[in-house]
Design a protein around this nucleic acid. Structure first.
Lengths: 198, 198
DNA sequence: ATATATTGCGCAATTT
DNA sequence: CAAATTGCGCAATATA
């Protein structure tokens, strides 16, 4: 249950280690026709073999690339979004981007405009930055939650103390009132109870 | 910031829709030697083309399958785990599992025992169940956090009221004490201040 | 040993 | 445009 990691302040920024080189071969050119075929093959094989379920995210991607939006957000009865399927579609999308000029020249522009190749260094840079931001944000959230819990406990404790104090004061007050009423009735022997010892 | 989804109770269980059939082609038999080659080919092509960075998770998977544990948990200087790489390794692992009897007969048992094919219906079933559990758990956490926040606010409010009450009582007490001291000195005019109107 | 619950993490969409 | 938030799925792990 408890977070057994290093202190958040350290951990939060310790995770800022640079993303590192990568040396991505940016879209090795050469086999165009063959690759586009491979892409289709891959898509079919995977989509068939794994059920081709899609998430809302993938819906939008597919929509962008093919103009298909056959399912509203979170209305799918088959929301079996696995990582594999996700990535498979991603791979397909990337390939489509690269070779869409040959396949769908008229639709290429809007497609290529929006999505960035998963192989690009730019993409990895963005991802790494976001990952860091996410870690940071979640650490912050964790700290916030912890603080709220501690504050609640602290308030509860203080509440109890205040309640005790109220009881003290009330009792003291009752005592004094009683004394006063007694004096009112009798009008004598003051000094004994003038200062309640409670 | 606010969760714009359906109420948690509904959402929590509305997501319990069954994972669905899939109709997986369970390891189409026939091409054994060729496929094992293809597996190796795939591994090399992907690992080479994308930098072959691995995550802690994939480390363990690879460790299981090949007995390699060349990197401690979260000590990698190249923590560029992309989804593609992950899945590619997964695919490789699955293939290895299927064909390891031919490649590594002695190591097969522990390997096949531990890891489950990503293509199996069993795997998808487990995943879907876990996804549901995760959603449920997170809804619960969200509710818990919200409740804690509300409780903190409530306690703070009550604290303030108690503080006010204490001030009232203290003042009242002071008044009574003052009256008593006055009486002690003078011993007259009781009824007027016997019941402070504060 | 199996099922569910919790947790850290990365991805993508969205927000700021 | 960059950073922050958020929902979500995966895998490891904890708990039951």
């Amino acid at each position: 249950m408890s977070d057994s990691r290093v202190p958040s302040v350290i951990q939060e920024w310790a995770s800022s280690y640079p993303g590192q080189a990568h040396v991505l071969n940016s879209a090795t050119p050469g086999q165009v026709g063959t690759t586009s075929q491979m892409v289709q093959m891959d898509m079919m094989s995977y989509s068939q073999s794994q059920g081709m379920m899609r998430s809302d995210v993938e819906d939008r991607v597919a929509e962008q690339i093919m103009g298909l939006s056959y399912l509203p957000y979170s209305t799918s009865c088959l929301s079996t979004t696995s990582k594999e399927e996700h990535v498979q579609l991603n791979m397909f999308v990337c390939a489509m981007q690269e070779f869409s000029p040959f396949l769908l020249p008229t639709l290429r522009a809007p497609v290529t405009k929006r999505s960035i190749s998963k192989d690009s260094a730019e993409y990895r840079l963005r991802r790494e930055r976001n990952n860091i931001a996410v870690r940071k944000s979640r650490d912050k959230a964790r700290r916030r939650i912890l603080l709220t819990q501690q504050r609640a406990l602290q308030l509860q404790e203080e509440n109890h103390k205040l309640q005790v104090r109220i009881n003290q004061l009330t009792q003291e007050l009752d005592t004094l009132k009683h004394i006063l009423s007694q004096r009112h009735l009798q009008g004598s022997d003051d000094g004994a109870a003038a200062e309640p010892s409670i």
